[in-house]
Design a protein around this nucleic acid. Structure first.
Lengths: 190, 190
DNA sequence: GTCTATATGTAGATAGAC
DNA sequence: GTCTATCTACATATAGAC
């Protein structure tokens, strides 16, 4: 803790995080990470046993990152509906990277769905965090089907990211984010 | 045309098509395709100059496949709204594979968005076909923003596939498909 | 803890016999 | 057209000096 080694470990995870997003997990090599960090390939095995372990560390870093983002959304308003809107806005503030590389969470899950079960379930953890948080917000609003609503919002955000990225369409992305917020605002307790 | 070589070419493309879907483009090797077809690795270069060329052939095969599927949807009803519902049902009929590997079109585009521009724009062709066809249907219904509606439907189907696949959730997939059809049915000319 | 050198496997691609 | 043998590059991973 607090040693030089921890710094190197953190730098490896941060570089891997970016590369997994921009190029994908399978297309990112140890050499790529070495080039960015300046840390020689061979050293990685002092911090991680396998490439899969690097992925696990990246996912854990992302869970931590999004947990903090959700906390900010939580603090942004007393009203759960406003909190959900605040979360949707995060995607808007990442407009350019979403158009370039898609959603960092969704694109990783989509890639690893075609890989081993271990990698797939690891990558899912970030989505589980978001789903549970969204479910909590919808529940506080009063929806009986809060979990279903959470899955719907998650899915609509993912679809928006996939299509905006595929067509390289910033206008569509912004319009769709607006529609998403309108949808959350229009939902009524039946 | 009609020679033995064309048969081999077709078999390579069909095997590649399946493998690109189940394992992804980058994770599919010539050896994998050779194992399935029984055609030796070295032979592939008689039919294709590079792996990218195999992808192009696969995309063209998919465009042809979906063009036929769209024609069937077109013939299924005189009413464009019904035709759109028929297309949505295609995803429902592929329930198990969608949960296992996602949408064949969307997952390929998401993967290749992190690859070269050439591969990315090639993979997009299937989506362009679907978008244009959907736009035509929404236009026939009478929507002024038919193209926007097409993008929305495409996005919602993609989001549904990503989430159903990530969470391995057949129930969610079926519910979401139902919701999608209700949405198409509920759209009114403003 | 950090580094270089290297092992081992497999990828895409080529050469040339038949 | 079909096949085997092989080239070159680069991947993950290991060994061992410092």
């Amino acid at each position: 803790m607090g040693t030089k080694g921890d710094n190197n470990r953190t730098r490896i995870v941060e570089a891997a995080d970016q590369l997994f997003y921009k190029r994908g997990y399978n297309q990112t090599s140890f050499s790529d990470i070495a080039d960015i960090t300046g840390i020689p390939r061979g050293n990685f095995y002092y911090y991680f046993k396998t490439k899969d372990d690097i992925l696990a560390a990246v996912v854990e870093a992302r869970v931590k990152h999004y947990a903090e983002a959700l906390l900010e959304c939580e603090n942004s308003s007393e009203r759960p509906r406003e909190r959900l809107l605040a979360f949707i806005d995060i995607m808007g503030s990442s407009e350019d990277t979403v158009v370039e590389s898609g959603c960092p969470i969704g694109s990783l899950c989509a890639e690893l769905a075609k890989d081993t079960d271990a990698l797939q379930s690891k990558s899912r953890e970030v989505f589980e965090l978001l789903r549970d948080w969204m479910g909590k917000q919808f529940g506080e609003i009063g929806f009986a089907d809060a979990n279903d609503k959470a899955m719907d919002l998650l899915a609509r955000m993912q679809g928006t990211a996939v299509i905006a990225c595929t067509f390289k369409d910033n206008d569509y992305l912004n319009r769709s984010i607006g529609d998403l917020k309108s949808w959350v605002n229009s939902l009524t307790l039946s």
